[in-house]
Design a protein around this nucleic acid. Structure first.
Lengths: 206, 206
DNA sequence: TATATACGGAACTCAATAGTTCCGGATATC
DNA sequence: GATATCCGGAACTATTGAGTTCCGTATATA
């Protein structure tokens, strides 16, 4: 991804590259990407927002597509640990505990980035993979744990297809945000969990 | 939308505009849009595919955004009549009867067009409205009828939120196609209906 | 201190494309 | 038949933006 130093081992001459600028530039890239989309984003915008020179960007990434690819891939790191997962003892409790204000904001930004690159995804397999790994999979992994716990404690049947279940809420949220352009509130999420996710999981409404 | 004749009433001089080219050009626009996305689409591509001159396009639409807007809006007309809706007597039967090969192909093209314009949707309210009216609403209208019938015949409770139900399948299909890049087969649709939509509607698995 | 590279910033090159204009030919009104 | 507008097609203009180069300055090695 990143432009490699020509020879990694040799102690090169001259001023060293300031690696702390990397995340700042990538973050600026995501901001511009979310606001303007892939084609609306220009390298000058990114440089300006990161208060960096264009030359600095091109010293680190060889092209716009690779910069974007790296920026998207690096969102993967921003994901919450499975450590911090709630464990309330019920599936509904766990699902609702996952709806936090910062989570919603984080998801909103990710969806805006997603919106900015969907049209490229169909034509750029590398970007498609990066987007899946950074935006879809981390959330799926958390949901997988929560549903598996529910199966283990016998709350839901072992026959249900967990892979189907973990995709329901993300699909509904993405559809609502990207296509319907409606806000995703905490109330909407709870309603979705109660009227769609839990019925699909075979949980009786209490 | 369309470039209006300067004065509609006066019988203008000269050769008349061949209105039969309009739908051909709009269809070419949708093809290119589906294949390359909004920014990847060039007017030359559209003209070439429609076997028309660029001047012909600009005589009819003032700009690229307006051409795209019109092309998207005109997909609305391609929708099936509510007349041709199946009426099998059960909700599950109706839902499954709606899955036809031509329907799936039609939906696939619409989703590719959607993918091509999502990034614009967030920044162009007119386009957002056109996309909703042409791509989301027609399908929602058909589903609304089917679910309302199920309520009327007492198959599902009158308490369920029909607006939520009609959005489930479209959301899952869009998510799978646009973000996961996985194919939507007839089997997948049936599975989705049985494991997500019908449970959310409160229909007991038979 | 000399050399090499990084930095932010500005100036530059070059390719692509939206939009315009003109062509030769077809088709309409007067 | 004269005039006006259409057609497809090609040539043209103007702008935008990716990528490069150079500047003066800062910071590293030798």
């Amino acid at each position: 991804m990143r432009q490699a130093e020509l020879t990694d081992s040799k102690p090169r001459l001259g001023r060293k590259r300031d690696d702390s600028r990397d995340p700042e530039i990538l973050d600026a890239t995501l901001d511009v990407l979310a606001e303007h989309g892939y084609d609306g984003m220009t390298i000058d915008m990114v440089a300006a927002r990161a208060k960096a020179g264009k030359a600095t960007l091109y010293r680190r990434w060889p092209s716009k597509p690779e910069l974007v690819l790296d920026a998207v891939a690096c969102m993967k790191a921003t994901t919450l640990d499975p450590q911090s997962l709630p464990d309330t003892g019920t599936l509904r409790g766990d699902l609702i505990a996952m709806i936090k204000a910062p989570t919603l904001r984080d998801a909103e930004r990710k969806l805006k980035v997603m919106a900015g690159i969907v049209s490229m995804i169909a034509r750029n397999p590398e970007l498609a993979d990066a987007a899946r790994d950074a935006l879809v999979e981390p959330r799926a992994a958390l949901n997988r744990i929560i549903f598996q716990r529910a199966v283990d404690r016998g709350e839901i049947s072992a026959d249900v297809d967990i892979e189907t279940l973990i995709g329901i809420a993300p699909a509904i949220v993405a559809y609502r945000t990207l296509l319907l352009q409606k806000p995703v509130t905490r109330e909407f999420m709870i309603s979705t969990i109660d009227t769609v996710v839990l019925p699909a999981a075979g949980v009786r409404p209490s």
